[in-house]
Design a protein around this nucleic acid. Sequence first.
DNA 1: TATGAATGAGTATTCATTCAT
DNA 2: CATGAATGAATACTCATTCAT
Lengths: 191, 191, 191, 191
Amino acid sequence: MNKKEKIVHAAIEVFKEKGIEKTKISDIVKLAGIAQGTFYLYFPSKLSVMPAIAEVMVEKEMATVKRRVDQNASFLSKLSQVVEAIFAFTSDYREVQALVYAGLASTDHIKEWEAVYQPFYSWISQFLQEAKSSGIIRDSIHVERTSKLFIGLIESAAEQIYLYDSKKDGNANQQKEEVLDFLKYGLGIQE
Amino acid sequence: MNKKEKIVHAAIEVFKEKGIEKTKISDIVKLAGIAQGTFYLYFPSKLSVMPAIAEVMVEKEMATVKRRVDQNASFLSKLSQVVEAIFAFTSDYREVQALVYAGLASTDHIKEWEAVYQPFYSWISQFLQEAKSSGIIRDSIHVERTSKLFIGLIESAAEQIYLYDSKKDGNANQQKEEVLDFLKYGLGIQE
Amino acid sequence: MNKKEKIVHAAIEVFKEKGIEKTKISDIVKLAGIAQGTFYLYFPSKLSVMPAIAEVMVEKEMATVKRRVDQNASFLSKLSQVVEAIFAFTSDYREVQALVYAGLASTDHIKEWEAVYQPFYSWISQFLQEAKSSGIIRDSIHVERTSKLFIGLIESAAEQIYLYDSKKDGNANQQKEEVLDFLKYGLGIQE
Amino acid sequence: MNKKEKIVHAAIEVFKEKGIEKTKISDIVKLAGIAQGTFYLYFPSKLSVMPAIAEVMVEKEMATVKRRVDQNASFLSKLSQVVEAIFAFTSDYREVQALVYAGLASTDHIKEWEAVYQPFYSWISQFLQEAKSSGIIRDSIHVERTSKLFIGLIESAAEQIYLYDSKKDGNANQQKEEVLDFLKYGLGIQE
DNA sequence: TATGAATGAGTATTCATTCAT
DNA sequence: CATGAATGAATACTCATTCAT
């Protein structure tokens, strides 16, 4: 792992533990095992690590989804697996997700959000396209645009459970079911 | 308007203009027309205004939706009006929305999010319940849970357009259409 | 107890517990059970309570000494009782003593110190004068001036034990003995 | 002179001139010729310079005493010289002495007082031991304990004159005489 | 006298950033 | 590339004091 990666991973850990405002560069470099000044050889400012973190987070999210989805299963099963994966990921990294969002929003980096998410959108587009081609989902679906709705719907449902909900454990499964149903109908699955 | 309300409204304005990090308490109190110390009689810290702001923002959002929805229109029309309203609201207040989210996420106030949104969830639940009772939407809908998915879906779609998208204007209408379609199918509307 | 006395006694308690810098007027008035503004009807500023506190402390110290001294005892016994009394008092009120000193020193009130101590000096002068008249102590003693040395010697010895010394308990008795011896010789007691 | 020493000496000067409450860190660093932040690389807080100042003050006091004492003079002369020296020193640095005392008392540093004074106590112990060995002072003297009484007596006498007394100049010599007499008897000098 | 909400001046401390090595 | 001591701007927050009631 090179120094830049060390910084990004250390930053994720420290942001996760202390929150954005409380995190000092000195914490990050200490955990990364490098000198204070070295940080600035790789990033021009504190908040400029955020897009790099976001990128890593989306990579992790995609990896989680890919790992969980069984390519040989039916579309309906895959759909369920995707929902499961995004809920699981959100549960694991909920603080960092919120932090990254906050960190990007606090600066002018927010526009980079779309670019960062693009690979994930593409993967989902592809996933939907296959189902559309096979006639499994309704033909009126616009796969690129729907991929964004798809991820937005599942993530926002998961966040409502894991970030805001106080009695989360009981509700997670019901919410997953509701999302899955909503998706089935929304995508117009022909069984 | 009492002092607390003055502070909240001034804070919204200043946060909107300068962002969270750049906003100084002195800016807020100057706009509110009160003394520096008075701020701390009502809020213990800079970030603790955030839940109060969030509350005002949700009130505004609900007011926008209620204003746009024609009670005599068909359910399908109302659905479209709701989507229009949330998109319009997000467009107007996009920076503040992101800021509030970031502000809540930066602190321990994030749990308050759900309570703050509750009145909006209730309103939408009611809206869906009527349609469900009339047999307009599928009977398998759980209105409370779906109200959260409903708002989450539309808001995340609108944010993707207005917060992250660079070529937003062209895309907004297409995205609205896609959302509306997705909702129609998702809710299982029987025409 | 009138309000002014309430303030002084509350101030002693709070200063004792929190130290000078950390003590807020609001703490004092809360303990005294009066309103914030009322403080300023009796004292023009925070530090101006200090002389009043000092006065109370010297009164307490004198009272302790008078209580401990048996008027029918021999001079030598009385001498020992005075030393005991001042050590005991210093042990009880050590923090407040240091605080009062610090409080007076921090301001221009330090000149009032002498006036505040005057009654105690007079009492000791009187005590020494009687012994001098009876030929018990050397004739070359100047009682007024020696009263100050007398108190200064015993208090500084006691402070060294109770304020600064870490292994105080074992040392207190030895120090008292040494002081007593020093005084006996210093005063030139003729037995 | 390294940065830490620069800070201590600058702090002495500024505290002397302005008092503790009125002294700003910015005054100290300006005089020391360093940056604001640099102060905190060496001392964690404003009051934490106090023990370092106390140390320097005791060093100065000892140096004054050593300078004034003629090693070839008689014990009685030396005794007089020590009294003169401590009175002179107290006169010169009276504000700083009070300030240091106040500063230490205001914090938890007061326990360090004894350690700081230790070298001075040792020197006086040695001084007394020589006189005791030569049979010049009474044999019942415990030199370590008496060294503390000795310094305490002279310093408190000097403080009473220079810190509290309004008509100090006339009284200083008389007080010195009285102290000297008291010491002669107290130490049981055999002439 | 008594109140306590409102004031606003004042500053210790922090920490992102720089730069000489 | 790497370092880490030094910098100094920047500000949230405190709290003694005031004053309208």
